[in-house]
Design a protein around this nucleic acid. Sequence first.
DNA 1: AACAGTCTCAACCGCCTCGAG
DNA 2: TCTCGAGGCGGTTGAGACTGT
Length: 322
Amino acid sequence: MSKKPSCIGEGLKKGAWTSEEDQKLLSYILEHGEGGWRHIPEKAGLQRCGKSCRLRWTNYLNPEIRRAGFSYEEEQIIIILQASRGNKWSDIAEHLPQRTETEIKNHWNTHLKKRLIDKGVDAVNDQPQASSPSPAKPKKNGSQEESNLDEQTLQSSSTSPVSLPCSSSFNITIPEISSDETPTESDFLSCKKGLERSSSTSRLLNIVAPRAASIGKILSTSIDGTLGSPIASPCPTSSLSQSSEHMISNKEDLGKSSDLSIIDNDFSQFLEQFLNDDETENLGGYNQDLLMSDVPSTIVDEDDLIGDITGWSSYLLDHPDI
DNA sequence: AACAGTCTCAACCGCCTCGAG
DNA sequence: TCTCGAGGCGGTTGAGACTGT
């Protein structure tokens, strides 16, 4: 079937939107609602194609969009969901309220993916990279620390892996980390017969698993009222109050991807154990968090959305299939 | 201060899916 | 069942911002 381009027409404007155009589109949609994008430009007095209007609305003008930087938890969600679902940004966006798929996609491509690639995980092509990290690429300021931490983590991963039990069909190992960091790591990923995971995805999950452990510990600490300690402060809990409701409301959706069953109930047990763990003084694992290491402090809850600290844990507990 | 290299992200492109007729 | 168009989706691009020299 041959289709004509969706945006054809004489005199249609391209490129950056002006504030005047934004105002016209915003006013129209607020008055008439979304939908019928093909006719919106004409009705709103815009020299744009409908598709462009839709994108402008969904990615920028929609007042529900949160434009603050990504929080630690949001990044973890992205990484976990990307590992399990691939680049299904719209799917991932459903579980990150106030975030657009474009935002998530950009953040992944410009930040998260690079971090994983630096660690030898080709999360895009799902192929393990050579042991040598990405070619000598000059690191910008502030990344040296991250690099060191990552190397440390990877090194421990490559030199002394800890095999998970019963992983005959799901060949996955996780980095050896001090017991106080991930005391229940062996509980995290149990084997699921018939499951096939590619090596890099497995390795990605290996990295994410202890990070999730860190989240559990942080939450546990937070609930105990000790989050104010400097060591925990970098962990933003932004948007939890709003996001948790939305996230949980989507829990049925989460299960629609069968590949998410990989972790099944074990993750729930794993996290529960963490939340019940009274031992909160040692957050060393969090300090070593490779994913947190370059999250700028400026993005911490700019919208002051902290409210429901249990949102994140509830989300995870309610989504054993993540 | 000027320039070059790098990074970020809004916008675009082209293909796909789905529903109406 | 087939065709067609609207909307959705993921990948790519390029302008502007940022950073280092």
